[in-house]
Design a protein around this nucleic acid. Structure first.
Lengths: 345, 345
DNA sequence: ATTTAGCACTCTCGATATGAGAGTGCTAAA
DNA sequence: TTTAGCACTCTCATATCGAGAGTGCTAAAT
């Protein structure tokens, strides 16, 4: 990566700024006029040649204006963008909305997806927080009909998972109550290892239940185990570069199909530290589908305890400042909420 | 609506069939050649004039082929299409998949959305089944931290809803157990009226809980209360008429935004009888956003007890035969599953 | 050593023209 | 009632053309 002088940096920033707005190649004259630059268009042209040689700009064709390359965007994001924040009143409004959502995690998720989509004008996704180290908290067994039993397990993060079991033989609600009481007293706060270490102090029924609880625990600890919340998918379609809709389709499919999504998240954000915003520009050579897209990702939650991921998909030509600040803000918001929730319990 | 003779009906059916495949206006010559018709293209042209006068066909411009009108599709769906079914082996495969999903309602929903999207090549949506008449089954209260209590309510359909309460003052887990035991014994199987009718046989804590349970019950009985499962949104983008992406955006937004969706469902499928497939062609004058789209909808579930809705969105030029059979089949499948589940409990 | 004015050159984009092709509607004959 | 024949219409793809925007280069100016 070349080292740019101030003028080069200024011109690059201005070109990116204008191109993000207009989606049109940016020419030297227009730039000088719009920003009343104190050097001439010829000088700008010289600078443009430098930036093109450095790989930060390109021309769609001879004698058209310049367009940022992926490298150009990367330089901008790393070196030029600075730490922007959402406007104070926007932050207040959003905070208020989260506050109103109370303790309902599903509402947090929906709200986060909605805020991200709205602020960034892109497509957003938010994965539900999942425990990195699930701990058992409470169990209910409810006899329904014959050998069918509804098992409801509450985990220490407050997640609730239910499942219907079919037992080998009918069991009365009384016996179920006895078993749950025993298990609830004994297993409180145990993690997977703890559960496995418990010896033969249980009868057959309790052993069975314990095994199922253990399986559920494993399922829950997978990275994209729960629901994925999305919003603003149609925003992406509004961008002119996706008018032809084919690349848009490919990109949206990435968000729609779970395996692709798991791949994406596990290769990037899961290894990053909390609330650290990552910007993937143009697929970074790995995702063909994302040729003309960028993704802004972050991981949120209580490190080591309960984490999730969130992100925004938009065209490469997106407003990185706004998007990064939105992602950072929402990620921090959710982290605070999750940490607070964990502390309560 | 005019009465058509056999030849007119045949020509209309063939034009719709071809147009659905090619998305191109259909001409008289091509029709005669492709289907080796025993009358000439001139005759077909005469028939086309009749069908155009009747309002079932139109010409994009003078001297282009014919294209079905919305009325044409309606006539086709009502009179010509017949009762088609998915192929037997497809039905078997799908049945098998549902069977493998066990009793997990969320998996049913995801699978239903996926099957609908795949079979119809459109965008699908499925609302979770919600109780028409919720009955209380079981309650758990779990003390978490200070005055915070996690309330988990199980309804007679097997739905589980959780919520975090903040009590006026700290309460021990013992006291919570006593209260839940009492409430679980007393309220088993009661509906909203039943709960309201219970007099002063409860202490203050129990009264509070009961009130919250009642509120939750009301929330749950709203038509689109739970999650909405979607799939295949990108299928729609693949259709040539949505290449320009603007009308596609409008239509997909209808599925993305909950209020619009509630409006759509409440005005149509909620008043229909179970497993009865409704076809809305071109917005039916009510939904501007659906100008070039059709929606195939059905209601599923156990009538009076637990119902949901499902549907497919596609271009007006969609294969109604395939889509209607897919919607009918999946709807019947889910109805069976829900009824079976209700009978178990 | 930079910066700038001047200018020729290039390329896109929209407007306009043109011809092939597909399809119709009409008329008159079968 | 059906059909062959034919003139007519309209679209679509292609080609042409000029305006406009923007560049790169050179030589002069700072």
């Amino acid at each position: 990566m070349s080292i740019l002088n101030d003028r080069q940096r200024l011109v690059l920033a201005l070109i990116i700024h204008d191109y993000v707005e207009t989606a049109q190649p940016i020419g030297s004259q227009g730039l000088v006029e719009r920003y009343k630059l104190e050097f001439s268009s010829a000088t700008v042209r010289n600078v443009m040649v430098d930036l093109t040689d450095a790989g930060y700009l390109r021309q769609p064709h001879t004698s058209a204006g310049r367009v940022p390359t992926e490298e150009g965007y990367r330089y901008f994001v790393r070196q030029l963008m600075g730490q922007t924040e959402l406007p104070a009143n926007t932050r207040r409004t959003i905070t208020h909305q989260f506050y109103q959502a109370g303790q309902d995690v599903n509402r947090w998720m929906r709200l986060a997806a909605s805020v991200l989509a709205h602020q960034s004008q892109g497509a957003s996704l938010v994965t539900a927080p999942h425990p990195e180290q699930a701990r058992f908290q409470h169990l209910s067994l409810i006899a329904t009909h014959g050998r069918q039993v509804l098992m409801v397990v509450v985990w220490s993060g407050g997640q609730v998972r239910q499942q219907i079991l079919t037992l080998a033989e009918p069991v009365s609600q009384e016996m179920l109550n006895t078993a749950t009481d025993h298990l609830n007293r004994t297993c409180q706060g145990l993690d997977a290892d703890g559960l496995a270490a418990l010896g033969g102090q249980f009868d057959a029924l309790e052993q069975d239940i314990l095994r199922l609880v253990g399986e559920e625990m494993l399922r829950m600890q997978r990275p994209v185990s729960g629901e994925v919340f999305r919003d603003g998918l149609t925003n992406v379609l509004a961008e002119p570069e996706f008018a032809e809709s084919d690349s848009a389709r490919k990109a949206l499919r990435l968000l729609e199909e779970r395996p692709l999504l798991e791949d994406l998240l596990s290769r990037t954000v899961l290894h990053s530290s909390m609330d650290d915003v990552q910007v993937l520009i143009g697929g970074e050579g790995t995702w063909e589908e994302l040729r003309d897209c960028s993704i802004v990702l972050a991981r949120y939650g209580a490190p080591g305890l309960m984490t999730g991921a969130l992100g925004v998909l938009g065209p490469t030509r997106m407003s990185y400042g706004r998007t990064v600040s939105a992602v950072r803000f929402v990620s921090g918001m959710l982290s605070d909420l999750v940490i607070e929730m964990m502390a309560d319990e």
